[in-house]
Write a protein that binds this DNA or RNA. Structure first.
Lengths: 150, 150
DNA sequence: CGGCATCCGATCGGATACTG
DNA sequence: CAGTATCCGATCGGATGCCG
């Protein structure tokens, strides 16, 4: 049988991450979770994804420890999906993808959504990435760095 | 006809990035490019991917402006694939994925590869992510930030 | 509303053979 | 070595209907 190649046993952390996330849908679900979505219907409306696909992805993300299924906070009979610490740790990935998209796929001044948390409505805060020794980064530097959020 | 949903016209930068990268293979190709791979065979051996798939992905990445096809530097008749500035800008994405994988898919002390650039063999440099106003990041903070590399 | 089951066309991707 | 071409099973994923 010809199975799809897996990367969960690769010796590369990037490959293992890729394998654990699963597919793009999952990443967009995580994005929506950071953006405040918690309910099945919220994800579904936001993503425009088929319900069976969403269902399968949510299940996989819960199984992978990225999301956690908890009782609805409003007392209804349904479940809500919230990010686990492991899921929250994907924040830099989402931010990095967002940055790349903003830099390369938008005309200057073209508006785009999801710049702030839709729930808290907090303004954008600027972060800087700099080396620990204070030297600025060479944009052409392709060395593999280790990024930590202190 | 039922076509796969595209995100290139989404108003979300994350979705546009996801759409532009295409699939996980493409991301791993970019990872290898950061790691020093340039030749078709290098990518093929490193990834273990079928040649037709690799061929298609390389073509898509070149078409998308992430890679550039240049004459081989050693004078041979073949092509090499190097990162464009747009491709190099994916560096934070790769690093973020690597970090997540290191934190969640490796036993403490378990070795993993690709921690340094295989060509330059430079040592790991530590980066810190901090807010521009100097305050440390709250790990529970789900606000959407903007990350810049000055 | 939140989900599961089923169908089925579209796409993915591994294997292999072939070319220069 | 660097691809291209073709085959074909496996998987993806949109649409739809059903149910509590």
């Amino acid at each position: 049988m010809v199975t799809r190649k897996r990367f969960d046993d690769s010796d590369c952390p990037v490959a293992r991450s890729v394998d654990a996330i699963g597919d793009w849908w999952s990443l967009l679900i995580v994005r929506d979770a950071f953006d405040g979505s918690r309910r099945f219907g919220e994800f579904q409306r936001s993503l425009g994804v088929a319900k069976n696909i969403l269902s399968a992805r949510l299940r996989a993300l819960v199984a992978g420890g990225v999301l956690e299924s908890v009782p609805a906070s409003d007392g209804s009979a349904y479940r809500e999906y919230v990010l686990t610490p492991k899921g929250k740790a994907l924040f830099p990935v989402i931010v990095a993808l967002r940055q790349w998209g903003e830099q390369h796929f938008y005309a200057p001044g073209e508006p785009h959504s999801r710049l702030v948390d839709s729930r808290k409505e907090q303004p954008l805060r600027m972060l800087e990435v700099r080396s620990a020794d204070g030297r600025p980064l060479d944009p052409d530097d392709t060395t593999v760095h280790k990024v930590t959020t202190p």
